[in-house]
Design a protein around this nucleic acid. Structure first.
Lengths: 316, 316
DNA sequence: CATCTGATG
DNA sequence: CATCAGATG
């Protein structure tokens, strides 16, 4: 596979963007869009850049659906993405790395030498996360600290001065919803308990693929997906009770009520071209810092995975 | 993958050859070539075409290493190969088709409507053979008629007026030679018994991937492969006792003593470019018709598989 | 270094 | 329609 390489003028220079240029934000692909819903368009809906004297941190999150495959993609460059987006921390999900692969790939972006990886030990080449940071975290922990839930490498936490950053890949409920009850009653609950525990000492940020489109606005065909993994009532309710009701704010939705912004499009049937997607990737933050979220954004034009990256600019 | 498409002038017309142009015949890749050995070169070593008044049949055999992959190869056309080589019957091995795939692919070459397929039922997507013929055979049988050996779809026999044509894919002895004894004591023996049985009524032709390089001349590095599947003493001896000593003639070797002609080059390490190969594919014929073998040849320039096609022109 | 399957999403 | 693994050659 080759990612379509698009040449664009950035700051007066011609650069090759290591992206697939689909412009999904031009399309609102809802079966019955409610009145007032509009498509997310990063070109018009992002606030102006912060000035240099404002202290802030830029976080990015991306489910890469296999990091080795992404890095092999012709035209893709992690360094270029880092330079263009200028993030301080990059959180990856579904790296699908084995522990033996991590050593080779560990320092994939120059200048980001603090990297922390989880790998599934139960199923090889499955799941996996990474936190890749410019600055050294105060501490790092892997998993939930509950060995029952930690064999699939789904969570890594980095502690920074003013917050804990959790990078999670929530279990998919699977075909036939065979893992739905585990996912909702065990994983979501354990994760939110863990977050509440951490919150006692510092604000918490949870990012990653939470494998749930919360409301009808977050999925292109709500009616047709009521029993699809990621949009069951059980998962949506769990999202509400475990995360939102316990004091974590969905930063994109707070910033953009009534805006349709997807972060995932299945590979099958060219759903990305017609913007038939789901919003599965989030930045949730403790209520106490929700007002510091300056911009919670989506980069729907970055290809190479069935998910696109999302970002959060947090004022400090 | 793309096969390198080569344009060449054939009969005054420019045609795109659906082939990988490697010219292995220019190289004699023997560790210690014995005096007098020369590389096979189809451009200089093939006899002149038979005139139109001579009755003959043209048989071709090819281990395609996955027929669906071959057909998907950009630049490959089965019809073009058929037109260029003008064979009457094409025998394939390692089609790797499942029974459910056969229906779609069955009539892959216009004008060759008599097609007969075997598929492995024990291991899906493994082994498999086909006979694809312009003329309708008098009868067809699948397998050896011994159910123990017939679950892997390794043999198909077509009866024509003046011979039986057997198309076989002999079991590989495997890593660690774990199947060596089965292959030699069961398969080779059963196959040659079956051939002798058929021979009572008509001459027999066996073609296909016999998974054995018979003599040192048939492999680029004999010393290094004494315990490799396909060149063990056991397999070589079995080739001699089961086939040659029982009255079947290796037509290529009889026509070309002292000529190094390979039909297989492992994908690893670019062995094809340096002509480091094996001769694993054969046309063996009953002694009674050996003198009618006008040309037993190899087409080392046809790519798309780790084996190349071989052919036999048999006068009738 | 290819093919295939089968699991997973 | 992608990723990955593992079997096979």
């Amino acid at each position: 596979r080759t990612s379509e390489i698009v040449t664009e003028v950035v700051n007066g220079d011609e650069v090759n963007l290591p992206i697939v240029k689909t412009e999904p934000w031009t399309i609102l692909a809802h079966k019955k869009p409610q009145k007032g819903w509009i498509p997310y368009n990063p070109r018009t809906m992002r606030p102006p850049p912060l000035t240099r004297d404002t202290k802030y941190v830029k976080l990015m999150s991306w489910n890469v659906n296999g990091l080795r495959a992404l890095l092999k993609l012709e035209g893709f460059s992690a360094l270029q993405l880092a330079q263009r987006e200028d993030f301080d921390v990059l959180c990856l999900q579904e790296t699908k790395l084995q522990e033996k692969d991590v050593e080779e790939i560990k320092y994939l972006i120059d200048g980001y030498d603090n990297t922390f990886w989880t790998c599934s030990v139960s199923k090889l080449g499955y799941s996996g996360t990474a936190i890749i940071s410019r600055v050294k975290p105060l501490s790092v922990r892997y998993g939930l600290g509950i060995s029952d839930h930690d064999s699939e490498g789904r969570l890594v936490t980095a502690e920074f001065d003013s917050f804990y950053l959790l990078n999670g890949y929530v279990p998919n409920s699977g075909d036939g919803l065979k893992r739905l009850s585990y996912r909702v009653t065990e994983w979501d609950l354990s994760l939110s308990n863990y977050m509440k525990e951490l919150e006692k000492s510092k604000p918490v940020i949870l990012t990653g693929d939470l494998n749930c489109a919360h409301e009808e606005i977050d999925i292109f065909n709500p009616a047709g997906n009521k029993r699809s993994a990621g949009f069951t009532d059980e998962e949506r309710k769990s999202f509400g009770t475990n995360f939102l009701s316990r004091g974590f704010v969905d930063t994109f939705r707070r910033q953009h009520p009534g805006v349709v912004g997807y972060t995932y499009w299945g590979y099958r049937h060219g759903l990305r071209k017609t913007n038939k997607g789901w919003r599965l990737d989030y930045f949730l933050v403790s209520e106490s810092i929700a007002d510091k979220a300056y911009d919670s954004y989506i980069l729907p034009d970055v290809g190479g995975s069935d998910h696109c990256p999302i970002g959060l600019i947090l004022k400090l």
